[in-house]
């Protein structure tokens, strides 16, 4: 959001420089000063912290490491391309010798780079979030529409809501390895474990907010639905869902935030591929560049969390009928 306000500030400034000077300084200058102050304190503070892996990484070290991580990624991609090229050439030769020769195509098994891990984490978090939402929204609607169901489920929700992902993880891991047995699995076990852990933890805000939103539908709209004799399905799709959209989205945004935090922790603990594993691996690696790389990961995790929330906000603005509501 700060980006867009900054941009709009710039264009407004060009139109009317004098009047908008104050506005511009507020929208652009103040956040910039804040950022610079933070970098300065970080640089100074980092120098005075000494760890067994050297000084704590300051902004410069982090920048260097992020460049290194990009280089690593590019090098890995080149290796991969070269690998497949060699493999193709080898296979072509074999075929040239005897057309009946058995050809094996092996996948490249290089170490996943930082960017591969980001991709894995993003896919996992979205899958977990979507699964949780697919369960939580319909369940929330059912619970919200029926006072008896609400009374029955509310204690359970309150009980499971505060449970940490790390407590679920061992159970989920064991259950997945026991139940998810297949010779040709569509998804890796680690993916399923992370996904279920994420879903279990991020289910609750959406469930509760949906239930509260649904049960808070105005009596007048319910009367309208009754006078029109809307069927149950029409009542839910035409009245209940639209009027609880704002609350559902509040829940979804909370859920997505939780999902992202939970995922990193789960990946770290379970050694499932993703950003969490990257952080853990760097920690175990213990080279002089490790702390810098972890710091890069921390910033990227923060940035992605922020972007995910912004995306949800954009969707909310698109879907919500109440355009006058202030969304932030």
């Amino acid at each position: 959001m700060s980006n867009t306000t900054a941009l709009s500030g710039v264009s407004a400034f060009l139109e009317n420089p004098k009047a908008n000077l104050g506005k511009l300084s507020k929208s652009l200058l103040v956040p910039l000063i804040g950022l610079l102050a933070f970098l300065f304190i970080w640089e100074i503070g980092a120098k005075s912290i000494h760890t067994s892996l050297g000084a704590f990484p300051g902004p410069m070290a982090v920048y260097e490491q992020s460049v290194n991580l990009i280089k690593d990624h590019n090098r890995e991609r080149e290796k991969e391309v070269a690998f497949y090229k060699r493999q193709e050439e080898r296979n072509a030769k074999k075929l040239a010798k005897s057309p009946d020769a058995k050809i094996k195509v092996r996948p490249y098994t290089g170490k996943p780079t930082f960017f591969d891990q980001i991709g894995t984490s993003l896919i996992t978090v979205l899958a977990g979030f979507v699964l949780a939402s697919l369960i939580a929204i319909p369940a929330g609607i059912m619970i919200g529409l029926n006072q008896t169901l609400y009374s029955a489920f509310n204690p359970l929700i309150q009980l499971f809501k505060p449970v940490s992902p790390l407590a679920w993880l061992p159970l989920v891991t064991m259950v997945v390895s026991a139940v998810y047995v297949s010779k040709d699995p569509m998804f890796a076990k680690s993916f399923i474990t992370s996904l279920i852990t994420v879903s279990l933890c991020c289910l609750w805000p959406t469930l509760l907010n949906t239930a509260v939103g649904v049960s808070g539908i105005s009596k007048d709209l319910q009367n309208v639905s009754q006078v029109l004799r809307l069927s149950w399905l029409a009542h839910v799709t035409k009245i209940v869902l639209p009027s609880s959209i704002p609350m559902i989205f509040t829940g979804l945004r909370l859920s997505l935030g939780i999902a992202w935090m939970v995922l990193i922790a789960a990946e770290m603990l379970a050694q499932n591929p993703g950003l969490g594993k990257f952080v853990w691996d760097e920690f175990q690696n213990g080279s002089s560049s490790s702390l810098g790389r972890i710091m890069v990961a921390v910033l990227v995790i923060g940035l992605i969390g922020f972007l995910l929330d912004r995306v949800m906000l954009l969707i909310q603005k698109k879907v919500s009928w109440d355009k006058t509501a202030v969304l932030r």
């Binding site: 007048d220 009367n223 309208v224 006078v227 004799r229 035409k238 639209p242 009928w321 109440d322």
Partner: peptide, 19 residues
């Protein structure tokens, strides 16, 4: 003994669906 469209109601505060 139940609501129905043959007895349409105009509500005090319009009760239009805001969306």
């Amino acid at each position: 003994n139940e609501p129905g469209p043959e007895r349409a109601v105009v509500f005090q505060n319009h009760s239009l669906l805001p969306w």
